Simulated scan of single mutants.
Amino acid sequence: MEAFKYFEQEGNNYNLKVQKGLLFTLAMGCVAAIVAILIYSTSKATFFYVALFAFIGIMCILRTTGAIIFNNQTREIQRKRFFFSAPVNYSFDDFDHFLISKQKSYFITIMVQAIMVMRKDNKTRHILLAQTLFTAKPLQKLSEEVSTIMGLPQN
C-alpha cells in the first residue's frame, strides 16, 4: 500500500485533501481588505468594493467544504463543489488530460492551478484539483499521485 501526500485513503476511496491553509489565508486577506476599505476609502464605490471582497471571502470559505473522491473499485470520480451542491460523477474513462496553468505577472509566477480535463457527453469539463502560489512543483507531484491512483501509464 502506497502512502500519498495529497490524499487520504478510506478503503477503495481516495479523498483529495482540501487546501484549507491557502483558502483561509485568502479569506483573511479579504477581511483585511474590507477593514482597510471601510477605514480609508472616500470613494463612492466603497459598497461595491466591500461587496466584492465579501463575495470572494465567502467563496473561499465555502470552497473548503468541497470534496473530490476517487473510487478505484467503481472507477469513478465524485466531485462536490460545496457542501450543499449535488455531487457530479465522472468515469476514469472520461479523463482526457491534466492541465497545469500558470498565471504570470512581470516574469513572476503569481498563481498555479492543477486541472483535470474530462470529456463527458461530448463536452469538456474541468475539475480544479489544487492551487498554489509561485511554484508548480507540488502540483506536478499531485498529478503524479492522481495518475497512480487512476492506474494511468507513467511516463
Rank of each mutant, 00 (worst) to 15 (best):
M1W: 10
A3R: 13
A3K: 15
A3W: 07
K5W: 01
Y6N: 03
F7W: 03
E10S: 10
N13W: 03
N13T: 14
N15C: 08
L16T: 02
V18A: 05
Q19L: 08
G21D: 07
L23Q: 06
T25H: 13
T25Y: 14
A27K: 02
G29L: 10
G29F: 12
A32Y: 08
A32V: 13
A33G: 10
V35K: 02
A36T: 15
A36S: 11
I37V: 14
I39C: 03
Y40A: 09
S41T: 03
S41L: 11
T46E: 08
F48Y: 10
Y49S: 13
V50W: 02
A51M: 13
L52T: 09
A54L: 03
A54V: 09
I56W: 00
I56T: 10
I58K: 09
C60T: 06
C60Q: 07
I61N: 04
L62A: 07
T65E: 06
I68P: 02
F70L: 05
N71I: 12
N71H: 09
N72E: 09
N72F: 03
Q73D: 14
R75G: 03
E76D: 04
K80D: 00
A86G: 07
N89H: 12
Y90N: 04
S91Q: 12
D93Q: 14
D93H: 10
D94K: 02
D96I: 14
S101Y: 03
S101L: 14
S101Q: 14
S105K: 13
S105V: 12
F107K: 14
I108Q: 09
I108N: 11
I110S: 05
I110A: 04
I110D: 07
M116S: 06
M116H: 01
M118A: 02
R119I: 12
D121T: 11
N122Y: 04
R125P: 00
H126G: 02
I127N: 05
L128R: 03
A130T: 04
A130S: 09
Q131P: 02
T132D: 00
P138K: 05
K141S: 03
L142K: 00
L142G: 00
V146H: 01
S147A: 12
T148S: 11
G151F: 05
G151K: 07
Q154E: 09
Q154M: 07
Q154K: 12
N155F: 08
